[in-house]
């Protein structure tokens, strides 16, 4: 009945701006149409939760924080020693399944689909752009494509997932998302940028 309205929809008109050298070396867009579920074990239930999740996904879970498991449309991020984030296309029944399968005395299932805004940044200057605000070594040998980190950008918490050598996804707090977006656009000015229309995979 109601359509979902993104936090940065107002800033989303596709346009661009050439950088000092006449090029547009970053592309920025918002990915929509996904859900995010957090699953966390309690102090004494981490093993039990792991085995529950293994039986649901029929896959080995990542062992270290920062590692990601990709299985079809599903992406599972290990966000803590006994905590996971699951990103799935919206409308998927997985959330309902999880609520049913994860017993409330074994784990806490929390929907965070609306809490985060997913901003995709890509291009030859993407790393230089993010290095202006993210105090992480983004060198490809260190922050390997396929990994993610929980860190800060513009004083707000963000999860940064490196989905390719020069492609990053930022999960920014929804209420700060427009501020983070404006910061990114301003920081992109010298590189030149292209704002890409909203979509499930806006830069595809």
């Amino acid at each position: 009945m109601f359509d979902r309205k993104s936090a940065i929809v107002g800033a989303m008109s596709p346009h661009g701006c050439n950088g000092a050298d006449g090029h547009r070396r970053v592309r920025i867009g918002e990915a929509i149409g996904w859900d995010l579920v957090q699953i966390a074990a309690f102090a004494a239930t981490s093993l039990e939760l792991e085995s529950t999740l293994r039986s649901i996904f029929r896959l080995d879970l990542p062992t270290n924080t920062g590692e990601v498991l990709n299985a079809g449309d599903l992406r599972l991020l290990k966000t803590g020693s006994e905590q996971y984030w699951i990103v799935i296309p919206d409308g998927d029944d997985l959330l309902r399944d999880l609520v049913v399968s994860v017993r409330p005395d074994v784990g806490a299932v929390t929907s965070l689909s609306h809490s985060r805004t997913r901003i995709v940044v890509e291009g030859s200057a993407a790393r230089d752009l993010l290095a202006k605000g993210i105090a992480l070594d983004l060198h490809t040998d260190v922050f390997v494509p396929g990994r993610f980190a929980q860190t800060g950008l513009h004083h707000t918490p963000v999860v940064i997932y490196r989905s390719g050598p020069s492609r990053y996804e930022l999960f920014a707090m929804r209420t700060f998302a427009l501020s983070v977006w404006e910061w990114l656009i301003d920081a992109s000015l010298p590189f030149g940028y292209e704002i890409v229309a909203v979509g499930r995979d806006p830069l595809a």
Partner: peptide
């Protein structure tokens, strides 16, 4: 111990 070496501003 979870995330590795990080900037002090994150703490």
């Amino acid at each position: 111990p979870i995330c590795g070496e990080r900037d002090y501003t994150e703490f």
